[in-house]
């Protein structure tokens, strides 16, 4: 029995990690065709960095993810605070609408955003991408921050006021530091969502601002180049670093 459960676990992890391991291994493969090992080489990394369009798309994606995550964290945190702190008409509707955005198929959001941008006469590019990305990141941020706020001791702001802090000082010195881990988590979530979004981005991006997922997508359409393996490995390392960073921040805030 024990042997069975162990091998089952091994199988699950094998299925999870084999593709990733293959990707990493073949990114260092000297051979052009993906199936035979031609020795260790960094040539695909080299050619990746010599591909100017690719590097540009990478920077574009990073910048977009950075700004989209930041903007949606700011708006999302304020929305979560409002929903948590105040009682007002339409609060439930507003709360429910967040879930609608989160649950609705991405393609619906993509089409409606494209329709809206065309109607407004907005040129497709960085601005349209940013607006779209903020839109789909927002509910995730709001929900992350709200979850933290629901466990927030209502007496903390009162204690701060009682000790002489104005509402603004209280927010700065007590509220924000306490919900900081949630803000970080929300930001990272937004960043990741923005970084690998394909569907919405396909609809609302223009030739002036090419981003990484779309670039990769168009690359693999004409055949799988080993450069993509190298790119995938880099992205993987980047995500791991981000993940460890967020874990480190979380564990530090708990101390």
């Amino acid at each position: 029995m024990r042997w069975l459960s162990r091998s089952y676990l091994a199988l699950v992890y094998l299925l999870l990690y084999v593709p990733i391991v293959v990707l990493i291994v073949f990114s260092f493969n000297d051979s052009r065709t993906g199936f035979n090992w031609g020795g260790f080489s960094l040539r695909w990394y080299e050619s990746l960095f010599n591909n100017h369009a690719m590097v540009q798309a990478m920077w574009n994606s990073l910048w977009l993810a950075l700004t989209a995550a930041t903007v949606s964290t700011c708006i999302g945190a304020l929305t979560a605070l409002a929903l948590h702190r105040y009682r007002f008409r339409g609060k439930k509707v507003l709360n429910g609408m967040l879930f609608v955005v989160m649950m609705s198929p991405e393609i619906v959001l993509a089409i409606s955003l494209l329709g809206l941008f065309l109607l407004l006469g907005l040129k497709l590019g960085y601005v349209s991408l940013l607006l779209a990305h903020v839109t789909f990141c927002l509910p995730f941020v709001v929900i992350t921050v709200m979850a933290r706020l629901s466990g927030f001791d209502e007496r903390l702001p009162e204690a701060a006021r009682d000790l002489g802090a104005s509402d603004f000082t209280m927010t700065r010195t007590v509220l924000i530091p306490v919900i900081m881990p949630a803000l970080m988590a929300g930001w990272l979530l937004g960043f990741t969502l923005s970084m690998d979004d394909v569907v919405v981005s396909t609809f609302v991006s223009g030739p002036s601002y090419e981003i990484l997922p779309l670039r990769i997508y168009s690359m693999v359409r004409v055949g799988l180049k080993p450069e993509v393996n190298a790119l995938g490995t880099l992205l993987l390392v980047f995500s791991l670093v981000m993940l460890m960073l967020s874990q480190w921040i979380l564990s530090r805030s708990k101390q």
Partner: peptide
Amino acid sequence: TPPEKRPLNTVFQNYALFPH
């Protein structure tokens, strides 16, 4: 008068210490 301007202080039921 708002609480921050009153020369009184409170000890809360669950202490409400600032965790950070």
